[in-house]
């Protein structure tokens, strides 16, 4: 798909395609904030940003560089109303962890990549819990975070499938 031209239209097209990964993350963060009147939903919304960061780091790392991850984290921090900077910090570390594993996991079947996500998400959730506890000087009830973790892990395959569709349709 690498077009030889370098006119402004072509550059715009390249930029638009390159921004798809970040945009999917931002869109999912916004969707995660919309209030659904399901019991306890707000406390256990899946961590969509983590799925986006993991997927794109794994399969298109050059389109999900650390600065983009940082921006996504800050965006979530701004919109979520929680302590500032925590999402940016944890997402960056998850991105770093995914970077070290991507060469191993990228060409393996999806189930292995999912296992990788399960492990990295566990670290990310534990780290968030610790950071929140440190910033608030409180030990939070871990149950809500645990449910959030399980939901995030279970929802990863369908969300990753949607990412893959976006990947095929717009990025390549």
């Amino acid at each position: 798909m690498s077009v030889a031209g370098s006119g402004p239209l072509h550059r715009l097209d390249t930029a638009a395609r390159a921004s798809v990964p970040s945009l999917t993350a931002l869109a999912l963060i916004v969707v995660g904030v919309v209030p659904l009147r399901l019991p306890e939903y707000a406390a256990v919304v899946p961590w969509f940003a983590l799925m986006a960061v993991y997927y794109w780091t794994m399969y298109r790392a050059e389109l999900m560089p650390a600065p983009a991850v940082f921006a996504i984290g800050v965006f979530q921090d701004l919109l979520g109303g929680g302590p500032f900077g925590v999402n940016a910090f944890v997402l960056l570390l998850a991105h770093g962890a995914a970077m070290t594993q991507r060469r191993v996991l990228m060409r393996r079947p999806f189930s292995l990549a999912w296992l990788g996500f399960i492990a990295i998400a566990l670290m990310a959730f534990a780290l968030t819990w610790l950071a929140m506890a440190a910033l608030a000087f409180t030990l939070f009830d871990p149950r809500a975070a645990l449910v959030q973790y399980v939901l995030t892990v279970l929802l990863y395959p369908p969300v990753a499938w949607a990412f893959a569709a976006a990947h095929r349709a717009w990025v390549r």
Partner: peptide
């Protein structure tokens, strides 16, 4: 109208 909930286990606030 409430247009946003805080997503997460650590905060109880709405937009």
């Amino acid at each position: 109208r409430v247009i946003g909930a805080s997503g997460g286990a650590y905060v109880r606030s709405v937009l």
